[in-house]
Design a protein around this nucleic acid. Structure first.
Lengths: 211, 211
DNA sequence: CGCTCTCTTGATAGACTTCAATGTTAGTGG
DNA sequence: CCACTAACATTGAAGTCTATCAAGAGAGCG
């Protein structure tokens, strides 16, 4: 178990991955830096997430990880985890399922950044984070608060911080969100989903209604 | 085994996934349509790829698949595939590894679309496709030809077809590529990588130099 | 030959970025 | 309690990249 301060890297791109991290508290993210210094955030992670299972099967990290709020993390060495997958098919299945949903969320982000406008992207990000934290049992839509800076939202959505600022103002003007100083909340869930064109299917939250 | 014409869907978003498809010949892609009709291509797939393993663990498809050139495909029902993973850990591992690399490529696409300029995005896409088809043993960098329309390249990179056209002209002017009528080839591999800021680490092509 | 699909080009508009300055808030230490 | 600092947020102005619209040119195909 490790406590980590605000804005602190805890895994670096290019390093060898030997343990998987579990988010116990706070918000973490995966990100890449492109030559030129611009950052792209790839995903956000909340209490209960296991964000770097891909390290189990890849030697070298292709991205970094950082805490965006003060956070507590647990690190599980790969070996016992791999041993557990050999013993229990259900653990192996859970890990594979988690990796698969990870991919589904990435696909939605590609679509969002590639084919949606600024306001749609930000609204969509909010809908996604609210749905996921609710599914994790951490909050409800009404009480949901996203504690990110506008620069971080920009790095996740492929926008500049200035444009994020103006777009958030637009969302406030439409009475869809409220936003006081690094605490973003949802005022009109239906309206926000509509703007975002949000369809939660890709999150695959229902545990195997299928099969 | 199925032969499929040009521009033909063979898996639809929202459908239930019951078999995995193997690309035997041609180029296939995964894509999503956002309300408004704009398309985002999520990945390209060449002979030897198994592009929808995620369907093994998810009930409902969150995207569609289509052939972009005339193609031959094989469809493997999920059941024997899942049975094989129970019997052989190495098959299970191969599938998980494939899913994991899938995710790594998505992460790079997010970064590309979110934080790179048009010319960098297109150059990067070319580098990626060339590297992957070479690794699959289908071609060499020198002989590599990408048979996509400019609209398709735009749908993959989040650009309009008009802007793709102008950007390809730019790449030709710089003598990095040649491009006659739906046949894009690489003239200067080093130069193209440089423009793309291409680092193939994320493709994880070396089979487990790690561990 | 006419049709369709793709590529190409020009003109115009819009979305978003960059730069730069100012305002706001919270924390720190005297 | 107040000055001082450091992060963030906000605003304006100017500029760039990319989209959209529209039209024409080739190429392949029945």
């Amino acid at each position: 178990m490790k406590s980590i301060g605000d804005k602190r890297d805890f895994i670096r791109e290019g390093s060898r991955s030997t343990e998987a991290c579990l988010v116990l508290e706070g918000v973490a993210c995966r990100y890449k830096i492109v030559p030129g210094g611009r950052r792209q955030i790839l995903s956000f992670h909340f209490s209960g997430d296991l964000p770097d299972l891909q390290g189990l099967h890849l030697g070298v990290m292709d991205h970094s990880m950082a805490a965006l709020t003060p956070a507590r993390l647990a690190f599980v060495p790969h070996e016992p985890l791999l041993a557990a997958t050999q013993l229990s098919p259900s653990i192996a299945g859970a890990i594979t399922r988690s990796l698969t949903i990870d991919g589904a969320i990435f696909r939605e982000w590609i679509t969002c950044i590639g084919r949606r406008t600024a306001i749609e992207r930000i609204a969509h990000l909010l809908c996604e984070c609210a749905s996921r934290t609710e599914a994790l049992g951490l909050t409800t839509i009404a009480k949901f608060i996203l504690a990110l800076t506008q620069a971080e939202i920009g790095d996740a959505t492929g926008l500049s911080n200035v444009h994020v600022n103006r777009t958030l103002q637009d969302l406030r003007r439409r009475k869809l969100i409220s936003n006081n100083n690094k605490a973003l909340a949802i005022l009109d869930w239906e309206g926000l989903q509509e703007v975002a064109e949000f369809d939660p299917t890709y999150l695959h939250l229902k545990p195997e209604a299928a099969q």
